[in-house]
């Protein structure tokens, strides 16, 4: 009886340790950006490039391009690499000025990175 209680106690301890480890892994894992966060950041950077390129070719209206670049900058600012939002902000400013040449140059710089 005592042996089985002891075994139960050991099994319980092992289960508790496993739970604690899983919880710790979840907490530690939860602190850093997930794979999905990196994927999202990369996708928004590439979206900004595609939007700017389409605007420069005259395929999308300025009001759409402005909002899409703003959205990309906001999403990047929330993501794992907030500084990636800076070039998108530059793109947005060039677009606000209507400076197609600057947009073209920024797009080729960003695409080369």
């Amino acid at each position: 009886m005592r042996a089985s209680a002891l075994l139960r106690g050991r099994a319980m301890n092992a289960a508790l340790r496993a739970c604690a480890l899983a919880l710790a892994a979840l907490v530690v894992g939860g602190c850093g950006p997930s794979e999905a966060d990196w994927r999202s950041a990369s996708s928004w950077s590439l979206t900004a490039v595609a939007v700017a390129r389409a605007w420069e070719r005259g395929e999308v209206p300025t009001r759409y391009a402005r909002r899409a670049l703003q959205k990309a900058a906001d999403e990047l600012a929330k993501g794992p690499l907030p500084e990636a939002g800076a070039p998108v902000d530059e793109l947005r400013q060039a677009l606000e000025r209507g400076d197609r040449e600057a947009v073209r140059q920024l797009v080729s710089e960003l695409a080369a990175r």
């Binding site: 994927r39 999308v60 990309a72």
Partner: peptide, 25 residues
């Protein structure tokens, strides 16, 4: 091919541009 994952309609709005140009939007 552009590496764009669709999380928002702003991104999806780009998908018809290669086929129809400005009409695609």
């Amino acid at each position: 091919p552009e590496g764009i994952h669709v999380e928002s309609y702003e991104q999806a709005a780009l998908m018809l541009l290669p086929a129809f140009g400005r009409w695609g939007f």
